[in-house]
Design a protein around this nucleic acid. Structure first.
Length: 595
RNA sequence: GGCUCCGUAGCUCAAUGGAUAGAGCAACUGCCUUCUAAGCAGUAGGUUGAAGGUUCGACCCCUUCCGGAGUCACCA
């Protein structure tokens, strides 16, 4: 089945036969579309072995492959490139295998477990566009790893404590008049976010007033009454003051309810949630243990540090002089707790923005220093920020794109266009609604996933609602069209009963191209996992859909009189629909039966 | 300032050190009396930020420079 591996081994045999020695460095690549063939052997590096020119080397190998293998039908050499054309017979066999393999694209269990963290929001405001990229990425990478045979645990760390939530609490206490999600009809996370914004407004106002009275900016920021209230709340929270704790629990519960609704619509789930309030103390203990063992050191003021100068970094504080935790302290605790909870995982993948690259470098080094072997298997899945045409998203400047609003907009646009195109006849209201949701979310997810995660990307709302070209809906549409075709074939009774495909005498170029693209799917699933990039599959799904559309446009299916050709085309269509569905599901995107 | 990442068509993005650097959008031209035109075919668009170097071969590796972003908190 693995065509590359087959060819590689045949080529190695050829080298052995022709030149008396071989190499593992066989450079096989897809043939460029402007040339004949499907696989290209780059022969320049082989001249060391052959002691001949690249052209001659290519020629000799080509001749050998034709006479010694069943699959290579002809070859063409251009400069040092050996382009191999495989027989149509072989390609029919390939399609047969794909067709007969329901799990094409899913690999058997490799016995390994892995943990993927994503989302991990603060609890003081609703999710935004950046969280969407994060969540879609985390979900998709999890699906990709599962398809590659891993058992995956999806988790997040919820940053539920700290000054940020106390700010929302303080503003609510002062100005909320007991407002609740029920009384206001507002989603809980948005309600709490409203008071976070309110805090900032008040804080700024108080700073202005205090500075007018002659205080410095820094003093004013600290002495502002609302800031002092928030800081006091944080102190009382750490002292387990019941009044504060119950306010904190109440407001966080509002947020969780809101988050859950957002996650539901996004289509993401988690196997286990970790809360910072549960792990920061463990982190503190671990740091203290490390201090005893001499892994860390204490400064005169009582603060605890790690020295990473030997690793090319600097010194990092782990506990403040008053003994309290900093950000990284709880991450240490969380990591250790997770490996206790899931002793069989071989590592963790942290889906976190690239602004925290330094942080994770430090974290993994610390865990390593503490003697945890798994630290070396931890990976920061670092992704680039999402920018707007107006520049960077800034919550304080109100330029943040809200996740709920955006999803709503996308679905509404999908609905408008679908109605305009008159594509909802025959659908019930529920079915239509489901379709709009699938298209809107599909467009959004695809837009965010088609770019290499590592790269920062621009989110242009105008472009994201596009449903043509390199988009999710284009691929969904291709799938729907195939399904319609297959329904009709069944209805007309032209669908073959036999499981295997008959061999048409010769393939149309468009048919052959589709099979070639289909045959590359599993290596793409592998590659996506090794580089943690859903973009690989997004690009692949697009390429497949495009290739199929070309076939669909140029080759008739249902009206084809030749029985074996008809069956081949139906099988080709069915396999394409299945691979599209599979690839899209790895992106977290559904595909419709009609649209 | 130190470190890291990024500069590819007007815009958004592709391209394991390999062929004439490819798609989508936008622009322009065609194709619905045949399986869904959210489609297909075509035209135009490039000194891959600049200059050197390594290599049979460089968007990719190395050096310098220019431009942009991130980071270097007893913030998270």
């Amino acid at each position: 089945m693995d065509i590359n591996a087959q060819l590689r081994s045949e080529i190695q045999k050829a080298l052995q036969y022709l030149f008396g020695t071989s190499t593992d460095d066989i450079q096989l690549q897809p043939t460029r579309p402007e040339f004949e063939g499907s696989h290209t052997l780059v022969c320049f590096p082989l001249t060391r072995i052959s002691k001949k020119s690249p052209e001659q080397t290519a020629q000799l190998i080509g001749e050998y492959l034709i006479s010694h293998t069943s699959q290579v039908k002809s070859y063409q050499t251009i400069k040092g490139f050996l382009n191999l054309t495989l027989s149509d017979n072989f390609w029919v066999g390939v399609l047969n295998e794909i067709h007969a393999k329901p799990g094409y694209g899913t690999f058997p269990s490799n016995g390994k477990e892995i943990m993927v963290e994503y989302s991990s929001p603060n609890t003081n405001k609703p999710l935004h566009l950046g969280h969407l990229r994060n969540n879609f990425l985390g979900w998709s990478v999890s699906e990709i790893l599962k398809a590659n045979g891993y058992r995956v645990h999806r988790v997040q760390i919820i940053n539920d404590r700290g000054i940020h939530i106390c700010k929302s609490m303080a503003a609510w206490k002062l100005y909320g008049n007991g407002e609740t999600p029920e009384s206001s009809g507002m989603k809980g996370d948005h309600l709490v976010g409203k008071y976070y914004v309110e805090f900032d407004r008040q804080h700024k106002k108080e700073i202005r007033d205090l500075m007018m009275q002659g205080l410095s900016q820094e003093e004013a920021e600290r002495q502002s009454p609302i800031m002092q209230l928030a800081v006091d709340m944080l102190r009382r929270w750490e002292a387990k003051d019941e009044e504060i704790l119950s306010l904190w629990r109440m407001m966080n519960s509002w947020v969780y309810e809101g988050f859950n609704a957002t996650y539901r619509r996004m289509g993401v789930e988690f196997d286990k949630l970790y809360y910072e309030s549960d792990t920061y103390l463990l982190g503190r203990e671990e740091v203290l243990k490390g201090l005893e063992r001499g892994v860390f050191f204490k400064k005169e003021d009582g603060s605890v540090w790690v020295d990473l100068t030997a690793e090319g970094l600097d010194q990092k504080v782990l506990l403040r002089s008053d003994g309290t935790s900093v950000y990284i302290t709880q991450d240490i605790g969380t990591a250790i707790l997770r490996f206790r909870d899931f002793p069989n995982i071989e590592g963790q993948i942290y889906t976190v923005g690239n602004e925290q690259e330094y942080h994770f470098k430090v974290l993994f080094l610390i865990l390593d220093k503490l003697g945890y072997a798994w630290a070396r298997k931890c990976y920061h899945l670092s992704y680039g920020m999402v920018d707007l045409p107006t520049g960077k998203m800034k919550s304080r400047e109100g330029t943040v794109v809200d996740a709920d609003d955006l999803m709503e907009d996308m679905v509404r646009d999908a609905e408008t266009l679908t109605r305009e195109l008159g594509k909802i006849e025959g659908l019930s209201d529920d079915e239509a609604k489901e379709l709009f949701e699938m298209i809107g979310l599909g467009a959004l997810k695809f837009f965010l996933l088609k770019v290499d995660p590592k790269k920062r990307m621009l989110f242009d709302p105008q472009e994201s609602i596009q449903l043509q070209g390199f988009t999710g809906p284009f691929i969904q549409y291709t799938h729907a069209r195939i399904r319609a075709l297959l329904r009709k074939a069944k209805q007309e009774g032209v669908m073959s009963q036999s499981a295997s495909i008959e061999n048409p005498a010769q393939l149309e170029p468009a048919e052959r191209q589709v099979v070639i693209v289909l045959s590359r799917y599993e290596e793409k699933v592998r590659e996506a996992a090794t580089v943690y990039s859903p973009a690989i599959l997004a690009n692949y799904a697009f390429e497949l859909a495009r290739e199929y559309n070309q076939f669909y446009q140029t080759v008739p299916v249902l009206t084809e009189p030749d029985r074996s050709r008809l069956q081949f085309r139906l099988a080709l269509s069915a396999a394409t629909a299945r691979v599209i569905r599979h690839a899209m599901s790895l992106l977290g995107i559904g595909v419709p039966e009609r649209m």
